[in-house]
Simulated assay, not measured.
Amino acid sequence: MSSGLSEKRAMQPIPARLVATMKAKSMSPAAPILVRVFKQESELEVWKRDTSGRFALLKTYPMCRWSGQLGPKTREGDRQAPEGFYHVTARMLNPRSEYYLAFNLGYPNKLEAALGYTGDALMIHGACSSSGCYAMTDDGVAEIYAVGREALRGGQTTFQVQAYPFRMTPENMAKHRNDPNYAFWTNLKQGYDAFEVTRRQPKVSYCGGQYVFNAEFEGGEPSDPLAACPPNNAAADPALVARSQADQRTIDTLLAGGVSPTAHAYTDGGMHPSFRKLLEQNGAKSLARSTSKTSVPISRPEAALADPHMVPQTQ
């Protein structure tokens, strides 16, 4: 790809309609952002800090393709899209991606590297093909890329990406109670809840072989993610404690009432239902440039289905 074309793609402005949405929600194009990804729902959310100092949802994008199954990525070649907490810098934006535009998630993060997980170049990118990444279509990633670029230009040194197997509701947690990844997902839910309750980006630390959120450790940040956590001087957030306890009571009630835990139903990845309809109507070639001009509902009951038509490509 020519450098001129790459530059043109990378410098596309934020669409005027989205700037208007920001204005209506008391946000500026330069304000910090936060991204959340949900595999099962095949959705990506872009949140932006408004004038209150808290984050509010800017837009939800349908995801065209992700590969693997629910659960973390642990090794090179497993085709798993990662789950966890990542931080994207300006240097991780890739204007010359063969998948239109992309940004690197930074997998493996410090915790994953300490656990011996392997793999690299895990991206959110354009097109509609994945072997471990999150594919948003060219139009979708162009919009997300522009919003992220302007936030980083505005002074945000990194923006956080939170990648989840599903929306961390009590109902979903109960359904997946018997999954071997349940303990890991319970840890992710702590960060999910921290953001849901406060609408502020959680501070992420690593110790005890897991993520720790909004901690203030004696002696500073732990250097060894696998060592026991130092004493934490941060006071517990009463609202967060109340939410966690209420969710656990709901999970227990659902399980006692006969909700059957289920295993992950896909054979390989998923696709948002809106793109499956396009696939059926127009064929696979139409999907890479399919536009994501409109938002989708914040949550959907449908699980994204595996797509046997998509041919995996090297990221």
Rank of each mutant, 00 (worst) to 15 (best):
P308H: 02
L5S: 09
D179H: 15
K175D: 10
A227N: 13
A90N: 02
R200A: 07
D247F: 03
R96G: 06
R49K: 15
M310Q: 12
S28W: 04
P62A: 03
A236D: 15
V241H: 12
G219E: 08
E280L: 10
S129F: 08
N172K: 15
A174S: 10
Y182K: 10
P301S: 03
S299H: 06
S244A: 15
S223M: 12
L255D: 13
P62K: 03
P29L: 05
S67Y: 06
I298A: 11
A113M: 15
T186G: 09
P202Q: 04
L101Q: 08
I33T: 07
L278I: 05
N233H: 14
Y117D: 14
N104S: 08
E302W: 05
S28C: 04
L254N: 12
Q80C: 11
A303Y: 08
Q12A: 07
S290Y: 10
G106M: 13
T137K: 11
M1A: 08
M123D: 11
Q281N: 15
Q190Y: 11
A246I: 04
V296N: 12
S223N: 14
T253A: 12
E221Q: 13
A81W: 04
A263Y: 05
Y61A: 03
G220N: 12
L115E: 12
A284P: 10
P312H: 03
V37G: 01
S6Q: 11
R243E: 10
V161A: 02
V204P: 04
S131C: 08
A121N: 13
A183Y: 04
A127R: 15
A81H: 03
F159V: 01
L122M: 13
M168S: 03
M271G: 01
Y134A: 07
V204Y: 02
P32W: 01
Y266C: 08
K203R: 15
A90V: 01
N94P: 08
G269A: 04
A235V: 13
E280H: 13
N172T: 00
M123L: 13
N233C: 09
T118I: 00
R199L: 02
S2N: 11
S205K: 02
A142E: 11
S290G: 09
S205A: 11
L105A: 03
S244D: 14
P273T: 00
Q40W: 03
C64W: 04
V88S: 02
T137L: 11
P222L: 05
G106E: 12
M92C: 02
A142H: 04
M173N: 09
S3V: 00
T198I: 00
P165K: 02
A284Y: 13
I124N: 04
G119Q: 05
R17Y: 14
G4S: 09
Q245H: 14
